[in-house]
């Protein structure tokens, strides 16, 4: 019973409590770049979820085989392989989405969330919790991207998932880069207001998985090795 509760917790924590985009502020680049339309946000989110679940599963299975010293390159190879796979699948079955996500589909490889979960969770846990953790985090990411995409599409283009929404004149600035920063800032503030906690004070490279090799951060924000 308690194990089941534990597994359920691994699944649900990523969706709201530790939402990777809105709470821990990881994977900001795709969050800002592809969310001009709700559909793109959803597609990007699901592609990332696929990679996250598969890489978590494989890394969890290989955790005793991979030598500790070279674990990060090994994780990156596993992740990049699944990214290549999803590129093929999307090019074949959803060519329109493939074109609109473009470069950012390849850049899933360097999404902090995936390497971060591999390092922090999958390399230390069993198969089932790792898959559930990946699924939860992925869905949390998808949810955040879908929300961002919806807000930007409704205000910026006067439509939602391709349907017209009669909403005055669309404000094009929302689908421009500036609108991305603005909407993300407002959503993070809103989420923290609703959850009744202080907004995060800083986002740093400390969130990036490579910084596990840093023993401390120097005055200028750089990384000091052991």
């Amino acid at each position: 019973m308690s194990e089941q509760n534990g597994n359920l917790h691994e699944f649900t924590k990523g969706i709201i409590k530790e939402n990777p985009t809105l709470v821990t502020l990881l994977g900001m680049c795709p969050t800002l770049a592809v969310t001009t339309m709700a559909e793109n946000g959803l597609g990007m989110g699901l592609a990332t979820t696929f990679v996250l679940v598969c890489s978590n599963a494989v890394i969890s299975l290989l955790k005793n085989v991979i030598p500790k010293a070279v674990r990060l390159p090994c994780f990156i190879v596993v992740i990049a392989s699944f990214v290549t796979l999803i590129e093929f699948l999307m090019k074949g079955y959803l060519p329109e989405l493939y074109d609109s996500l473009g470069l950012f589909l390849s850049l899933i490889t360097v999404n902090c969330i995936i390497l971060g979960r591999a390092e922090a969770f999958a390399s230390k846990n069993k198969l089932l919790p790792s898959i559930l953790d990946g699924l939860g985090m992925g869905l949390g990411f998808t949810l955040a991207l879908f929300l961002m995409g919806s807000v930007r599409e409704i205000f910026g283009m006067g439509s939602w998932m391709g349907f017209e929404i009669p909403f005055g004149t669309p404000m094009t600035i929302f689908i421009m880069p500036a609108g991305g920063f603005f909407v993300l800032g407002c959503i993070i503030a809103l989420v923290n207001k609703l959850a009744n906690r202080k907004p995060p004070q800083s986002v740093g490279c400390a969130g990036c998985p490579n910084s596990v090799n840093c023993s401390s951060f120097s005055e200028n924000g750089g990384c000091q090795n052991k």
Binding site: G185, C186, Q201
Partner: peptide, 16 residues
Amino acid sequence: TFKGVPATLIAASIVS
């Protein structure tokens, strides 16, 4: 509510 990262993001939006 905006102190911290949200304010930084909105400043980034203006620079953009």
